[in-house]
């Protein structure tokens, strides 16, 4: 290793290798209505091998809450009160980045105001729900959150370093 590279390695305060850009693959299995959704494909009955399709990942994770998460899901795949199994995995299939949660759909997708209602009706076919994790799976939540918060922490540190002072 060149001397200059050795010096640089001593200077590095952020280990960029700790930052893991990840693409999430989310599938859900509605235990109440017996509908499974994987990458926007509804399957009756469920057969995971058949479910693997190329395309977009329309189930999106937006926000982590105290006892669950907010997902944007395809239209009519669940309703308030349904029990749903939600599986998260990353594209690189790392076993420590694989999570399954039994959840209850806790909130219906009610428009916030007139403007939101208009957009929801005419522009957006997606549904938004808060998924509350069943108490038996709650212990997994901190490890799940850490997967994202670690990246945010490094991103903030890197962002501040790059901006300098």
């Amino acid at each position: 290793m060149k001397k200059e590279e050795e010096q640089d390695n001593n200077e590095i305060i952020i280990n960029l290798d700790d930052f893991k850009p990840m693409k999430l693959i989310i599938s859900i299995e509605n235990m109440t209505s017996r509908v499974s959704v994987f990458r926007d494909r509804k399957i009756y009955p469920k057969d995971k091998e058949d479910l693997i399709q190329h395309g977009d990942f329309p189930i999106e994770l937006h926000e982590l809450t105290d006892k669950g998460f907010i997902l944007e899901v395809p239209d009519k795949c669940c309703s308030s009160g349904h029990m749903v199994k939600v599986t998260f995995e990353t594209e690189n299939k790392r076993p420590d980045e694989y999570f399954t949660f039994l959840t209850k759909v806790a909130d219906d997708d009610q428009p916030l105001d007139e403007e939101d209602e208009k957009r929801a009706r005419y522009q957006d076919p997606r549904q938004v729900y808060l998924f509350t994790i069943h108490h038996s799976d709650l212990e997994k939540l901190p490890r799940f959150e850490k997967m994202f918060f670690k990246n945010q922490e490094i991103a903030e540190e890197l962002f501040e370093t790059l901006r300098g002072r």
Binding site: L16, F19, P21, M22, L61, H62, E63, L64, T65, F69, E145, F148, F149, N151, Q152, A155, E156, L158, F159, L162, R163
Partner: peptide, 23 residues
């Protein structure tokens, strides 16, 4: 959440950079 997006944002003098999903 690519690293290059953070670099670009910092160089352009963005004030904060937040990854999704956020709390």
């Amino acid at each position: 959440n690519s690293q290059s997006a953070i670099t670009q944002a910092a160089e352009e003098d963005v004030d904060a950079f937040i990854l999704k999903p956020y709390s």
